[in-house]
Design a protein around this nucleic acid. Structure first.
Lengths: 266, 266
DNA sequence: CAGTGGTCTAGACCACGCG
DNA sequence: GCGTGGTCTAGACCACTGG
């Protein structure tokens, strides 16, 4: 009479007659456990060795299964510690009125004011300002000639020391050169307030939103786990004369943000 | 004197003194080749065996490298054929005025009219209509009681036979029951035209946008390659009395869409 | 049929974390 | 020091594509 170790109950979860690959079946089990709540956010998965024993497969097969869940953003692993059900960080809602409001707020940049308002600690770092030839898509959006330079502002935004987005703004040098827009600190109300003071009364913003996987540099800068896509939001500010005066390219961690827009029906 | 086969030039690309894992170095090489255009969209990568020979590693190591690029959405592999630089399909731009327009268009649903307008063949399939208890988040958004039922409309949209999005609409049964909204074919102008005919003049739409990796069911339904995230767009239609009359939950392939919004500055 | 990617084994050694 | 995940080897067999 053969021995029947207790892991037999788990081994029975595998269907050897199924066409579905073993590692996919294991991934399915883990996914079901997570979605059902049997494994909650932050819970540790069984170790790879344990699962290999349980299912009667090698560690490499288990790793394939876990890899599926990591690619789907459900699981995050930490070298030397274990694999965990990924926690969804607190999201920040970006309303479509955020810039209308900003124009009225004096003294603080919108990001700082809003994040402090919910009791978190906002930071802006990696600020650089330079004058450059813009990339082609920016040339198009700003209706510039091919040799025209722009002031380029780069910065990264963090909430409670967690990076959530970074942005690059392009303003025609003709407008921004020598103004506060070309300084590290643009002063109260940010560059939109400065643009209006310079006579470019703003009419509207056009926003283009894409979603994609980050490149390795973006993943590093935003400390993204595997399986977390980014929003790419390209905003063009247009003044009342119909002239585009700024393009801002923002890359945001998709699990730090929900974008809210209100559209009139007419 | 040892033989130096021609693949030696490629083997030299590996830096054995580097801390970076071999499969990451290989992935870096391939990514650089793709981003520089040396490998263009649709081009076939060297076979796994070829790369294993070139770099002097096993096939499993090469597969890890290719897996990195698949997870990033850069590469797509086809069983028995090879691995290819992924093609980005044509994108459809979703303007924020798409529903204001729709109200004026008679005779055709907005999706069909717009896609035909660019010379492509639009399809809607998997249409189902039923009456159900809505999920919690829909109960909240529609300001409903806990036992109230809604008419649920599901459908999938395809462009040139490629699925690009699927959507689920929830309309309070009290409003929709017995009307064209509860039929397969809602008639000219779609459900928004019917809602207005029923006396619910629409005031605005609230849209919430998220990005995330698809679950396996979504990936199958939208035929998504690995490394392609989805947009999830939840739209709530509100009538002039301030009553939410529809919630529509749409899941879209992120590489089929760019979302465009225009925001007034004031 | 040959060549491709997909799955899986049975090991090995390493780097990291934590007690 | 021990358990964890990370990397890598050297095979094997399979499923699929295409000539």
């Amino acid at each position: 009479m053969p021995a029947t170790p207790d892991n037999q109950v788990l081994i029975e979860h595998l269907d050897p007659t199924s066409d579905r690959a073993v590692f996919r079946q294991i991934a399915d089990h883990l996914r079901a456990a997570i979605l059902s709540g049997r494994l909650g956010e932050g819970d540790q998965l069984p170790s790879e060795s344990q699962m290999a024993d349980h299912y009667g497969v090698t560690r490499m097969t288990v790793r394939q299964a876990v890899g599926v869940l990591k690619g789907g953003g459900l699981v995050e692993s930490q070298h030397g510690r274990g694999a965990y059900v990924r926690r969804r960080p607190q999201v920040r809602r970006l309303g479509s009125d955020r810039f209308a409001r900003q124009l009225r707020q004096e003294g603080k940049a919108a990001f700082l004011a809003e994040v402090e308002g919910v009791g978190a600690k906002p930071t802006v770092d990696q600020i650089t300002v330079s004058e450059e030839r813009p990339p082609d898509d920016v040339v198009q959006r700003l209706h510039l000639g091919s040799r025209v330079k722009v002031v380029v502002r780069r910065r990264r935004y963090l909430i409670d020391a967690h990076p959530v987005e970074f942005a690059t703004s392009y303003i025609p040098a003709e407008i921004a050169r020598g103004t506060a827009i070309a300084e590290q600190n643009t002063g109260p109300g940010g560059i939109y307030a400065r643009l209006e003071e310079l006579g470019h009364r703003l009419d509207h913003y056009d926003e283009e939103i894409r979603a994609r996987m980050p490149d390795p540099e973006e993943a590093r800068s935003l400390q993204l786990a595997a399986g977390v896509p980014v929003f790419q939001l390209i905003r063009t500010a247009v003044d009342v004369d119909g002239r585009p005066v700024e393009v801002c390219n923002t890359v945001m961690s998709s699990d730090a943000y929900v974008l809210d827009y209100r559209l009139p029906a007419q």
